[in-house]
């Protein structure tokens, strides 16, 4: 079984610590996504698992085996790089067979495995081309094919879609999801794109400045973010966070006491529009952005804050119009001074 265990992993480059103690268990066959803003250490963590960075402190186990000092090639992992890292002087076939050749797999076996992988990725027609003759999407597929042929226990993906255009990115995303369903291998995937994280992951690991902020299923992260950072990182457009003093009074009037909270979060998609007098909040539409499926409203609140609201349906208020904003109590997120979520969210007064 190929579970993965990270125990108190730390990493320093010189005097700067970039990973500050990470503990994580990854189950066999799980698709885990590391997500976070750039510089959060997600790629470094992945590269430490791959064996491309040495481990300053802590232990990494792949299955039962401690791999701290096992060389990259002997860890049973394969990696898909951001730049694909296809050897420019080798054909697609030779690129895919390269690792097998290095490991002295017999030629007939090599050929069989390359054929299989190529067939599953629809690369047969491209086997004799060179990487420079391929499109971005094709290169991406070859990079995945190269990872598949080695039959690894764990797949590692380092921002594999970030060099593709938007349309292709969506397409390849679904291919990677299908790949996981088919192979059922453990996969670890690094991205800064929270949509990719949400759509692909069994579990998401949110990292910031070398520390895990939260681990959970996409739903857990979306519905009950552990802190302000996760709340604002997951979900698009970002969650509105209003200072507690701006809304505390009105909430209290409805029988909700938010106590020591510093901030109250509301996702734009959870806010509905009402008549100006009857809403929890009241404001004026400053800007409306029509996206086709919905309209994104920038509402200037009486308190001076701006809230984003997603309005569905045909009746969208015009710029300058007064509106009231309403939200169901189960959709309120409350955060304390340190940014930690307060749960249960809202207590009856």
């Amino acid at each position: 079984m190929t579970s993965l265990t990270l125990r108190n992993i730390k990493k320093s480059f010189g005097a700067t610590q970039v990973i500050k103690g990470v503990d994580l268990e990854i189950a066999d066959g799980e698709f885990v996504v590391f997500v976070g803003p750039s510089g959060c250490g997600k790629s470094t963590l992945l590269r430490m698992i791959a064996g491309l960075e040495d481990i300053t402190e802590g232990e990494i186990y792949i299955g039962e085996r401690k791999v701290n000092d096992v060389q990259a090639a002997q860890r049973g992992v394969a990696m898909v790089f951001q730049s694909y890292a296809l050897y420019p002087h080798l054909t697609v076939r030779d690129n895919m067979a390269f690792g097998l050749k290095v490991r002295k797999v017999p030629a007939s076996e090599r050929e069989r495995r390359v054929r299989e992988a190529a067939a599953s990725l629809k690369l047969e027609a491209l086997l004799d081309r060179y990487p420079r003759e391929l499109s971005g999407g094709q290169r991406q597929r070859v990079a995945i094919g190269r990872a598949i042929v080695g039959n690894p226990q764990v797949f590692l993906f380092d921002e594999p879609l970030s060099n593709l255009d938007a349309e292709l990115r969506v397409h390849m995303r679904s291919e990677i999801a299908a790949l996981h369903q088919r192979l059922e291998n453990t996969m670890i995937y690094v991205t800064h794109d929270q949509i990719e994280a949400m759509t692909l992951a069994d579990r998401i690991v949110v990292l910031r400045e070398g520390v895990i902020e939260q681990v959970g299923t996409p739903r857990e992260l979306y519905e009950s973010p552990a802190n302000l950072f996760v709340a604002q990182f997951i979900g698009s457009p970002r969650m509105n966070v209003l200072p507690a003093r701006a809304v505390a009074g009105r909430l209290a009037a409805r029988g909700l006491n938010i106590g020591a909270a510093e901030g109250v979060g509301m996702r734009p998609e959870h806010i509905s529009l009402t008549a100006p007098e009857s809403g929890l909040l009241r404001g004026r539409v400053a800007l409306s952005e029509y996206t086709g499926a919905a309209t994104l409203l920038h509402v200037e609140l009486e308190e001076g804050e701006t809230a984003l609201v997603i309005a569905n349906g045909p009746a969208v208020p015009a710029n300058g119009q007064e509106v009231g904003l309403e939200i169901a109590r189960e959709h309120l997120h409350v955060f304390d001074k340190a940014g930690r979520a307060i749960r249960p969210l809202v207590q009856a007064a």
């Binding site: 085996r65 096992v70 090639a73 002997q74 992992v77 490991r103 797999v105 039959n151 690894p152 226990q153």
Partner: peptide, 9 residues
């Protein structure tokens, strides 16, 4: 059968 780990161990 696993090319990657057999050799490694």
């Amino acid at each position: 059968a696993d090319a990657l780990t057999e050799k490694g161990s």
